[in-house]
Design a protein around this nucleic acid. Sequence first.
DNA 1: TTGCGTGCAAAGGTTTTGCATGGCA
DNA 2: TGCCATGCAAAACCTTTGCACGCAA
Lengths: 139, 139
Amino acid sequence: MNEKQIYNTKQRRLILDCIAELGGEHFTAADVVAQLSRKGSTVGQATVYRMIDRMAERGELRKYVIDGTTAACYQLVGTPDADCREHFHLKCERCGRLIHVECEELSRIAAHMREEHGFSVDSSKTVFYGICGSCKQGK
Amino acid sequence: MNEKQIYNTKQRRLILDCIAELGGEHFTAADVVAQLSRKGSTVGQATVYRMIDRMAERGELRKYVIDGTTAACYQLVGTPDADCREHFHLKCERCGRLIHVECEELSRIAAHMREEHGFSVDSSKTVFYGICGSCKQGK
DNA sequence: TTGCGTGCAAAGGTTTTGCATGGCA
DNA sequence: TGCCATGCAAAACCTTTGCACGCAA
């Protein structure tokens, strides 16, 4: 096989714990580094990047790419097959806020696209652009 | 209004010409800079970025984000205001084809977002990424 | 012992920004 | 004249990489 062996190091356990604590919430590589150092554990950012990259490749994390100037978001995948809880992102063009949406209606979009238009949507790269509620009222 | 006045400078004309020559093909900011200097016209990259950013904001260019480490792609939009309302775009990540979709179901997405999530989707800027039917079968 | 993992710092690439100058209207 | 636009270089940003050392198995 071409699968490299994985060593069970202290840093690996720290990172896994940290991600597990977030329980399904989204996070960035910087979030992990920050949260670890908040607890007094210092782990190099390169290590964090290398680890989450590998987890994403193995399908243990889902990676969301927003745009070139925003850090990538990651999310723990419960069980590779048992979760259809994909979510979409809304990006406000005015305040720049990123909103995460997990919604029945939105989940159906993917199904509709596939059935009616033969198109498999990749929700990890799809971002809805527009104006959020706060900005609309504040304006 | 908060729309700033736009001056018709030499650089602006050069950049617009350059984009027009590409006629609908996609390009990156670096492509524009390169093509201009190939013709002997030197335009600062900051100027190019500022101009295409503004064009994208005004809906004259559509912006495609592949991932954080790749340059963003832009593409000239035919007519800014024609009927790109309630009309979405699907971008195939494999063949690169851009598919225009006008569909009852999809039109409802905007309404749903507005009513349930207080978010006004700008459909001219939103692009769904995924794999199209032909590519799925051909694969 | 073997070779994967780690840390640090530096490099990588794209995009943004500060500031003084130049040009359109 | 009053803004807006430009250029240059530097900064900012996220992410990757080189290399020597440490550590799991």
